[in-house]
Design a protein around this nucleic acid. Sequence first.
DNA 1: AATGAATGAGCCTTCATTCAT
DNA 2: AATGAATGAAGGCTCATTCAT
Lengths: 189, 189, 189, 189
Amino acid sequence: MEPIRRRALVKATIEEVGRSGSLDVTVARIARRAGMSSALAHHYFGGKEDIFLASMRHILTVFGAAVRGALATARTPEERVRAIIRASFEAGNFHPHVISAWLNFYVHAECSPEAARLLRVYQRRLHSNLVHALRPLVGDRAGEAAEAIAALIDGVYLRHALRERPARPAEAVQLVEGHLDLLLAGGGR
Amino acid sequence: MEPIRRRALVKATIEEVGRSGSLDVTVARIARRAGMSSALAHHYFGGKEDIFLASMRHILTVFGAAVRGALATARTPEERVRAIIRASFEAGNFHPHVISAWLNFYVHAECSPEAARLLRVYQRRLHSNLVHALRPLVGDRAGEAAEAIAALIDGVYLRHALRERPARPAEAVQLVEGHLDLLLAGGGR
Amino acid sequence: MEPIRRRALVKATIEEVGRSGSLDVTVARIARRAGMSSALAHHYFGGKEDIFLASMRHILTVFGAAVRGALATARTPEERVRAIIRASFEAGNFHPHVISAWLNFYVHAECSPEAARLLRVYQRRLHSNLVHALRPLVGDRAGEAAEAIAALIDGVYLRHALRERPARPAEAVQLVEGHLDLLLAGGGR
Amino acid sequence: MEPIRRRALVKATIEEVGRSGSLDVTVARIARRAGMSSALAHHYFGGKEDIFLASMRHILTVFGAAVRGALATARTPEERVRAIIRASFEAGNFHPHVISAWLNFYVHAECSPEAARLLRVYQRRLHSNLVHALRPLVGDRAGEAAEAIAALIDGVYLRHALRERPARPAEAVQLVEGHLDLLLAGGGR
DNA sequence: AATGAATGAGCCTTCATTCAT
DNA sequence: AATGAATGAAGGCTCATTCAT
């Protein structure tokens, strides 16, 4: 039972946070959407913060899996970079509720050490993946390039959280790949 | 007294929200930091939400003034774009507390219509400034280019909110201008 | 549990309002007298106003039941009128706390639409009962007669709310029946 | 200045209490309607309760004056009784706001000793006036008769407080005089 | 495994009241 | 005579959390 309940709660949390656009959702609401009592939610997780952390972990895990999956089929360095970008805006990750929940958790990291830790892990992995893929393409400037692409990805997420639904993954990808195109075209020398 | 008190409250709000990295700060805390009772804070503003909106308005006003000031001395289109970028990361705007408060208000706009309205005004103005400056440089692609630069600016802000203090305006500017450099170098053709 | 708690709260409300002679009683006081936390009171009712309305509804229900019960055993029109009068001052209704609570709710109806609605229902039912019983006795003048008796009942209640305890049902009945006696004696012609 | 300000406040209080149908009106509102600051209201009266008491005193004074005036022109005992009844529903007293304020103060007496004292004075005077006028008409039964008429007057007031505006003095008088008519017609023997 | 029952803690907000000017 | 400025106190309400069943 436990894993089923936990999954249901995580899903409900993302939906509820995503819908309301705020972490000020009651445990009772989340539990109700997950089809159980709030007492049970507390039983399976320690408390509200733990539910949030589990949800954040889930979002980051899904994201990581998407990147890993995309990287597996990439053959060239350039393909690897594009794979990371595309994975970032894949349907599963780029759903309005998920975007909003992601942003809320992101901000929540400012006052939750554990959330900050999770986020740093994600950022470091993304950065390392990007650097690894970019090095053969731009050499020493891989670090800055990775930083710019990561910022661009986060910025696009941020701006989508406020936009009217639904999100347009294709546009998002194009915007970030536009930067990559410039980088590869002009940056060769 | 009223303008003095209001200014003090806005300043205290930004500081308190910035420090804690969350909008879950009590009116009492804000008022205490501003050196008054919470009753007085409610007297001068209507309530908590109004204090937040006034603070957000203040941040956006300061930002707008910085951009306007920077634009005033720019002579060429390229200088105009760089002026906007630099103004975005000017010391006054790019203070850790301000960054954090800005981000929190940004997210708050997801569930506050008035905050959303304020944000849209800021976004539209930034976009229009960028497009106006970019058109002579990249022609039809000014719209996309503006979108990318704006996303980059927001992304850098977002990532700085999580970083350990203090912020590094110079690095931030360089990151965004790096994109502009690529754009202008590769966009000639 | 719910019905038990609700009953306890209604009872405590009437007692507390009756004792203090005012609706300015805190939910906490009411809840404490009912043996629970104020949070639970808010849980079972929506808020203070709902607690008041439920209490008013209870008073009017008890009153209505008393009248219905008394009418059931009345054989003649005159007995019906006297039954209504006596039921109005029956021990259950004419308890000092109940009188005071009733009066407070009555006045509260001036600024609470739902309370006003409840009161109108009670008034209309009382009026209709009286008219129905009086018609065979005074014909066309049943309407005015009902109005006078109702006003007399309310006036006696009002004046008892201020009196030192305890109430004297017998005197109250006699006062109203005195009017009825005059009506029936002089109204023959 | 003082008497002018006090009069203005009393008038504003009756209007404000009458309009809202509740004593839960802020001193600030009352003062604003009276065209002054709430601080000044506190200066002239000791506090909120004193403003209420002065307003109540004013209502009772006006009422008393109306009765005295009416009694002055009455020649026979019966005329005296009718004079009292008519004075009770005179335009000045029977204005919707005044009725509502009167009722609110009446109920307030349940938890304000001084208000209770004022009310008792009014009640005693009314009772004594009625008894004095009724004695020549109904002898020993003057006490009960006075009680009934007083209850009827209060009841009519009470019921008018809830009614839709405007009040109908004529109907009110007729209702109470109807009782008197019965009393004099049937009570002679 | 699951929940209804229950509460302590805390926050926003209101308002009568005071005081310096 | 008059008021703007200021606050302490208090109340309604919410909610995360606990616990007995």
